[in-house]
């Protein structure tokens, strides 16, 4: 971990294109991303994710250095990464109680 300890977000793995909030981060908080400083456009709750660089629609979303899904829209640095712009890449034989219905 190389980021400042005071930052409300943590990078779990060097390869990640997401950062995880360790506390609730207020709207307007300035965040250093891989592509420069941005301001949060909304409050990000603890344990939620933001992009730390541009993620294109169709790109793999990485956390822990591992794929957690596929982006369903272009995501800008600092933007909330969640069920509205990520889908599971896993194709189980049953329909999961997926998070698509939850915003």
């Amino acid at each position: 971990m190389t980021e400042l300890k005071a930052c409300p977000f943590m990078r779990l793995h060097p390869d990640d294109n997401t950062l995880v909030a360790r506390i609730n981060a207020d709207e307007g908080t300035k965040i250093n991303t891989d592509e420069g400083q941005v301001q949060l456009s909304r409050m990000i709750p603890m344990a939620h994710k933001i992009a730390c660089r541009h993620i294109k629609s169709g790109d793999v979303v990485l956390k822990y250095g591992m794929p957690i899904g596929v982006a369903t829209a272009d995501i800008a640095p600092g933007e909330h990464v969640h069920v509205h712009n990520v889908r599971s890449a896993y194709t189980p034989s049953v329909v999961l109680h997926d998070a698509d219905a939850v915003s």
């Binding site: 957690i68 969640h82 069920v83 990520v86 890449a89 939850v102």
Partner: peptide
């Protein structure tokens, strides 16, 4: 994968 997981910040089963 339940709604509570999404509220807690988890986006997918993976």
């Amino acid at each position: 994968f339940a709604a509570g997981n999404a509220a807690g910040g988890l986006s997918t089963i993976e």
